[in-house]
Design a protein around this nucleic acid. Structure first.
Lengths: 217, 217
DNA sequence: CGGCATCCGTGACGATACTG
DNA sequence: CAGTATCGTCACGGATGCCG
């Protein structure tokens, strides 16, 4: 028997970018990271938020990511004893890569195809940079027709999450298209508020900074 | 016959990162961009600096990139009438993506495998950010045992190039391992000079800034 | 029901050979 | 020099089955 691991296909180049692509260049891997940047997720939730991925590919990728130290499996304590997948520090370090990709790909969202799947928290990545420029550290809920997510500005741990945060410093209410323009940098929060396309709820410094257009402390 | 273009496989997600990966997520595409960031290149040169890519895949990728507006074909005037490939503005906009990937992948260069190919200009990407932090606008030659390349700090157009620049503002002489530590941020230029691992040649402000460790004007 | 493993059809990939 | 043609292999996507 030859139990040879068919060792992962590598570019075999002594180049930092090629090394990175050896680790995360496979199909679906970076999108799994995008999901896990929202915090620990169960296998079934990952499968539901990654429409099109087959079950075996998802299982294989998760195993690869675990083997490479990008993610870990963890058993939640009972009751509700489910196993969740979670990014390691190295995996979370891919945030700048996904941010750069999102920034570059944002213009392509101008076209919205009928076959496109949509999850509210997918808007978090382009928004992270914009909101961080507009306001200091804090947690902001973002309310769309399609769902709610939250972003954490200037902290560590998960950069964003699905659903509302426990105690947000501010809440933004807008529609998906306004959210797209915001993420693309075509619109500032202050401009959106003035145009009546964005409502900012909250009375703390984060909400004030978002409304006013000048950074908080 | 059904001449249906089996239209490129898409993630079909209304997400900026997924859109970006639709465009550049295929195997080899981002490495072709890395090569073209060094300036216009001929097909054969691309093939030579991308060891492992098969000729048909390279041709297919270049056609895809052309169709997507990432690159253009251009015929050089005779003599030496060769066709070269060149990035468009949109294609060059991928530089932050490759920079982020390089930054994340740089630690993996600690292990150097005997099967790894190596081209001098592959060190340019991790170095770009570090040198831009250390010195103002200018052109810097970097001389390794394995070859020479140059980086352009704070300009537009190609961010780096193979071989020496015409009139560099400074020249750095070091070995590959020092270059790796420099790119990873484990070492500053000033520290490398002090340790005798880096020589900085040139008498202008760029060279002075690199030596001194404080940014130029 | 969550978490995979197995099977199968299709297409992408990699190597080599060949051509304008 | 700049690709196209051919072919074997493997990865992917979809469906289904198993097992705690």
């Amino acid at each position: 028997m030859s139990p040879r691991q068919p060792r992962r296909r590598s570019y075999d180049q002594y180049c930092a970018s090629a090394r990175a692509l050896d680790a995360v260049g496979d199909r679906w891997t970076l999108l799994i990271v995008r999901e896990l940047l929202a915090g620990p997720r169960r296998y079934t939730d990952l499968h539901a938020d990654l429409p099109g991925v087959s079950t075996d590919v998802l299982a294989t990728r998760l195993k690869d990511m675990e083997a490479q130290g990008l993610a870990t499996r963890r058993k939640l304590p009972p009751p509700g004893a489910a196993t969740v997948y979670e990014l390691t520090g190295r995996g979370a370090g891919l945030l700048p890569v996904l941010t750069a990709l999102a920034e570059w790909g944002a213009p392509d969202l101008a076209e919205r195809r009928p076959t496109d799947a949509l999850r509210a928290h997918w808007f978090a990545l382009p928004l992270l940079r914009r909101l961080a420029e507009a306001a200091g550290p804090g947690v902001v809920d973002v309310v769309l027709d399609e769902g709610v997510f939250h972003v954490r500005l200037g902290g560590e741990g998960p950069a964003y999450g699905d659903g509302p945060a426990g105690a947000p410093d501010a809440r933004l209410v807008l529609d998906a298209d306004t959210c797209r323009e915001l993420g693309e940098g075509l619109l500032s929060v202050a401009q959106g508020v003035e145009a009546g396309r964005i409502a900012v709820l909250g009375d703390g410094p984060v909400a004030a900074a978002l409304r006013g257009g000048h950074p908080g402390p």
